[in-house]
């Protein structure tokens, strides 16, 4: 029997991935470390600022799972939520250097920088990327994009830095969300109401087929947990996707930007069909 992962909130997801009874939350809701920038703008804060950090064991190994709550402010990254992400990654790196290898799992459901905290959100996303890279050299950092929101904006760059990226068919990954592109570039460039087109570009199936994500899993707690355990078990690869500059050049060279392939043909064009 399947248990939906997508139906869980960020906290439920984080605990569900870890070995039963091993998870402990850090800077949880009762610490009440809220964003200081929302109330002055008449926005109701959330006691955990929409990021859940749970430390525990993953198949017996030390791990930290960091979940972004998509229901709060569209998973937007503000000062507090971003700093929770960056600090957890840095502490995992510190432990890994000190002889306690600690992998990280990121549950990425986010529209990117929270615009109510604009410049501090942007700054913390840069700090998240830096901390992620620091840990990634020592231990795997596994990204999971299960849905339904997807992973966009600055945090999609963090997704691109992950050791391994796991998606479901319901997950989406892209730099700019459909509405943002449509309003910047016009409906002829990107029609945010054309769901078939959007999923054919951003969807988990397409991103794994084209090699921009690694594993496609069904929306099932056990399946996602197994995929995460397997990804962590593979350890740190000799070279990460985001280090392969030459490969990026080759992928771009294979496509004529004035006459790009249909999304369904891209995997074949890239020799990944």
């Amino acid at each position: 029997m399947r248990f939906s992962f997508i139906e869980l909130d960020a906290r439920g997801r984080a605990f569900a991935l870890l070995d039963g009874g091993t998870g402990g939350e850090l800077c949880g809701p009762f610490e009440r470390i809220e964003s200081p920038w929302l109330e002055p703008q008449d926005v109701v804060p959330q006691s955990d600022d929409g990021v859940v950090v749970v430390r525990g064991k993953l198949d017996g190994r030390s791990a930290v799972v960091i979940g972004i709550e998509q229901a709060f402010q569209g998973g937007g990254i503000g000062e507090v939520s971003g700093m929770k992400l960056a600090t957890a990654l840095s502490l995992a790196a510190r432990d890994s250097r000190a002889g306690v290898p600690t992998a990280a799992v990121l549950l990425l459901e986010t529209g990117g920088v929270r615009l109510q905290e604009a410049n501090l959100g942007l700054a913390t996303v840069a700090e998240v990327c830096s901390a992620l890279l620091e840990l990634r050299a020592l231990q795997p950092v596994v990204g999971v994009i299960a849905g339904m929101l997807g992973c966009f904006g600055g945090m999609s760059i963090a997704a691109g830095l992950c050791t391994e990226l796991i998606m479901t068919r319901e997950g989406r990954l892209g730099l700019d969300g459909p509405q943002v592109i449509e309003s910047e570039a016009g409906v002829a460039e990107f029609d945010a109401s054309d769901h078939t087109m959007i999923w054919s570009i951003d969807g988990g199936t397409q991103r794994t087929r084209t090699g921009l994500a690694d594993v496609l899993v069904p929306d099932d707690v056990a399946a996602i947990r197994s995929a995460v355990i397997e990804a962590v078990g593979c350890g740190v690869p000799a070279e990460h996707r985001s280090q392969r500059i030459g490969e990026l050049g080759a992928l771009l060279a294979a496509v004529d930007p004035a006459d790009p392939p249909k999304p369904g043909d891209l995997a074949a064009v890239w020799g990944r069909g």
Partner: peptide
């Protein structure tokens, strides 16, 4: 901000 950018994965290019 563009369609070919999303298709080919600008998020990945920026990560690089």
């Amino acid at each position: 901000y563009g369609r070919v950018e999303e298709l080919l994965g600008l998020h990945h290019a920026l990560a690089v």
